[in-house]
Design a protein around this nucleic acid. Structure first.
Length: 604
DNA sequence: CCCCCCCC
């Protein structure tokens, strides 16, 4: 049963009449040759009497075309559409943009073009008049255009509000410049400045959402100043006259092929309705902290927890960009008896007051994985709420204030170090073959090696006695030691180990450096004992150090080129030294043998 | 027109 078309409606639609759910036939569909990132389809569509060759699919319908649902002769019902001018205001062509449709009859079923349609631009005056009689009786009377191009923005805004003629975010495209969206701000960045060879300036971005979709908007320079204070997360705004451009998917996690830029023409008006008019609330997909362990690195996480511990504000200069960053690490705990670290940046880090152990709700934080531990980082499109007034927050408060956070069993951010399975097995010759350590980031690997020589010279230094300061102190004489980092004089110091030793495997041998804790572990003595022996009892020191010779370990090594003056040295640092787990090591050897020989691939 | 978020 092939449906009948809504004969003669195309000219009326193109003249601004709002016709509910017209039934039309697709006569042709083709991809527009535009930017490779933004796929668009243009269609030739007919009502049986007239056709329109300037119709386009909103990108969320591309999928239907991919599935072959919009072939030649398909009969469709337009559930949602807008018309708009393409090109410069008033000078261009009017297009029909379809954002929702239903397939009524497949093209393969219809098989033929219905009627002998001519271009709607040839329609007579009579055909433009709204028809009074059915079948289009339920079509509403002709409405004012959603957003008149006049100078009084408020009047046209109100027109659009009252007539409910805002546009869905998902229908926005560069092909259409007259629209008003009604959208909730789901996140907002801090103001950031930039300076590069192409210029400098400042900007902030926000993410906008309505029932149809989401989009990122950015305000530069003057617009940044003009709108930054006005835009508030969670509020709903009417927004119009932004410039649309293809989104760079490399940077945007939002589900929209476009993003927008505020311009001098941009109008933003707060929607003060108590009822937000169907704009959904921000949805938090709250994940228990324990579940983050099982999630992918770099995945986005919404969660809620109590800030049990607050780290100091830290400042550092990025090695790659030379920019200064401020950060602060928090530890969040929740009722899954788990703890995770959360990193705050910039003003969030500076202004954070964790002494009252507030409830922290975050949305869109990123997972960073290191050595098997996972932590969260609050970045670009993330939001943080402190003590939000939601039931989950009150529940957590009650739980924590009654001692709930005292027995945290699961440290999601803890590094699994030691016998972790994810470090690659290599030998010491592979370092050269694979050119490890040349990149910006260090390379990590493990190998089985035997200790050849342990150097006693410079195996320790006298360090600042403060717990967290390990800086070498200056001996001022008369039993006074000065720490330049703490800018203080102390009557004492602590010994710290910094041991160089040569280790070898079947392929090669290399000098490696061990820091304090691993040095203590390998020598089987505290740094204090080792330091005292080296300073006062050379026979005892010799005994300690020689005991380490010719012992075998599984070394986890960090490999990185380091520059000393004009010299670059490929440096190996011991991350861990563990006894040989023969079961695990043999498994690796068997796998290597299989790969080398191709024999025994069925062996488990 | 930005798109940086280190280190371990």
């Amino acid at each position: 049963m092939v449906a009948s078309l809504s004969s003669g409606v195309i000219p009326r639609i193109m003249h601004g009449e709002d016709i509910s759910k017209p039934v039309l036939q697709i006569l042709a569909i083709k991809k527009i040759n535009s930017n490779a990132d933004s796929e668009r389809y243009r269609i030739l569509i007919s009502d049986g009497k007239y056709f329109n060759s300037y119709a386009m699919l909103a990108s969320q319908l591309n999928e239907m075309q991919h599935k072959g649902q919009l072939n030649e002769f398909t009969i469709v019902q337009l559930d949602k559409y807008v018309t708009s001018m393409v090109g410069k205001d008033g000078a261009g062509k009017r297009v029909l943009i379809i954002s929702e449709l239903t397939v009524v009859n497949a093209g393969s079923e219809v098989k033929v073009k219905i009627g002998e349609p001519v271009t709607y631009e040839n329609a007579s005056k009579q055909d433009l008049a709204p028809k009074a009689a059915p079948p289009l009786a339920n079509a509403p009377a002709k409405k004012e255009p959603a957003f008149k191009n006049n100078n009084n923005n408020n009047i046209s805004m109100n027109t659009s509000i009252n007539s409910g003629m805002t546009h869905p975010i998902s229908s926005l495209s560069p092909y259409q410049n007259k629209w008003v969206i009604k959208a909730r701000v789901t996140s907002k960045t801090a103001v950031r400045t930039w300076s590069n060879p192409r210029g400098e300036g400042k900007l902030f971005s926000m993410d906008l959402m309505d029932e149809s979709g989401e989009i990122r908007a950015t305000a530069f320079k003057e617009q940044c100043d003009k709108f930054f204070d006005m835009i508030q997360v969670d509020s709903v705004y009417f927004i119009s006259k932004c410039q649309l451009k293809p989104a760079n998917k490399q940077y945007s996690q939002l589900n929209n092929p476009y993003e927008m830029t505020f311009t001098g023409e941009t109008v933003v008006q707060l929607c003060e309705d108590a009822d937000d008019g169907g704009i959904p609330d921000i949805k938090y997909n709250l994940v228990p902290i324990s579940e983050v362990s099982g999630m992918e690195n770099k995945a986005a996480v919404d969660t809620i927890g109590i800030c049990k511990e607050v780290g100091e504000l830290q400042s550092f200069v990025s090695r790659t960009t030379n920019k200064e960053f401020k950060k602060r690490d928090l530890t969040l705990v929740d009722m899954s008896s788990s703890a995770i670290n959360l990193t705050l940046w910039g003003d969030d880090a500076v202004n954070f007051d964790g002494h009252v152990q507030p409830v922290i709700l975050v949305k869109g934080t990123r997972i960073n994985e290191f050595n098997g531990g996972k932590s969260l980082s609050l970045g670009g499109g993330s939001i943080m709420k402190i003590n939000p007034d939601i039931p989950e927050a009150h529940k957590l408060r009650g739980w924590f204030d009654n001692g709930g956070g005292d027995n945290i069993a699961n440290m999601v951010s803890a590094r699994t170090g030691g016998g972790s399975f994810n470090t690659e097995w290599l030998n010491l010759k592979d370092i050269n073959i694979r050119q490890l350590g040349r990149g910006d980031k260090p390379d990590y690997f493990q190998c089985k090696a035997v200790v050849h020589i342990v150097r006693q010279e410079n195996a320790f230094y006298r360090a600042c006695p403060q717990t967290d300061c390990n800086k070498k102190v200056v001996d001022e004489g008369n039993d006074q030691y000065r720490c330049e980092r703490c800018n203080a004089l102390y009557p004492n110091f602590k010994y710290r180990l910094l041991i160089n030793m040569s280790i070898g495997d079947w392929a090669s041998n290399r000098w490696v450096t061990c820091f304090n804790e691993i040095g203590e572990q390998l020598l089987g003595h505290t740094s204090q004992e080792v330091g005292e022996a080296l300073e006062n009892d050379s026979a005892k020191a010799e005994q300690m150090f020689s005991a380490l010779n010719f012992t075998s370990h599984i070394f986890k090594l960090r490999c990185k080129d380091e520059v000393y003056g004009d010299m670059t040295r490929n440096k190996l640092t011991v991350q861990s030294a563990a006894p040989i787990n023969h079961k695990e090591y043999n498994k690796y050897l068997l796998k290597e043998l299989q790969e080398l020989t191709g024999i025994g691939s069925a062996t488990k």
